[in-house]
Amino acid sequence: MSDTATDRESSAAESDDGWTVVVGVKQVPDSDEVGIDPDTGRLDRANAPAVLNAPDRDALEAALSIRDAVGGTVTAVTMGPPTATDVLEEAVAMGCDDAALVTDRAFAGSDTWPTSYALAEAVDHLGADVAVCGEETTDSSTGQVPPGIAAHNGWAQLTYVEDVDPLPEEGRLAARRDVEGGHERIAADLPVVVAVAYGEFEPRPAGLHRKLYAETDFEPLELTADDLGIDADDVGMDASPTQVGGMETVDPVDREKETVETPAELLDALSDEGVIAR
């Protein structure tokens, strides 16, 4: 549609005055609703409702706050089937200028290696100065995709970021990172991939007007493997180094589950267990 194309071109032109920020989001099964099929022992993800990965809300807020500080645009990107458009609408409702759906049958069965490759090509295609991601996804919890995007593109990366501080005059982004037992302040050259720490940003609410637009008029840009110059052999299951060799349910640890009424009774029990002396 020509109107949409014009909008996209003009927003890209405006970004000369600021930074092009791309934020990666993912649609995941609602982790509270995933069950295990008792016959196969496999996870029954099909029946769980699909939602926006919760840590991605922090990423969206961080991305929008960078735009607030330096100007430019924020484009949300997700990789998945066409139904994943729902999470892009949520991103646009929250304030993203545009959104792109990276979708292709060739991507099916990808582990983190081809996933980060496809997203690396997508953020590069969108001209990102900064690519922001959540810390990890609630469905696979690897945290590997943000560093993977940076590694594929040879870009700088900042993970476990609790605060962002754009330095446009230096062409760098400074950030506060959570490191074991403390914090560091670190500055990275652009382009940079930022993975923000879960729970460190307060996501802004979606505006009503924006929400209406996202749900009615908005259509995401679609990017296929071909659009991104990706050979189908370099993505998908065959390009994935890891495979799931098996799944087993974990037996719950056997606990006493004994309710005691008073502190004295508890201390007696702990003393009998030999974990305290009295």
Binding site: I36, L43, D139, S141, Q243, G245, M247, E248, V250
Partner: peptide
């Protein structure tokens, strides 16, 4: 562990 620890997945890299 996968999916909140209810499942243990074995990952291989052939």
């Amino acid at each position: 562990p996968a999916f909140g620890g209810d499942v243990l997945a074995t990952i291989v890299c052939p």
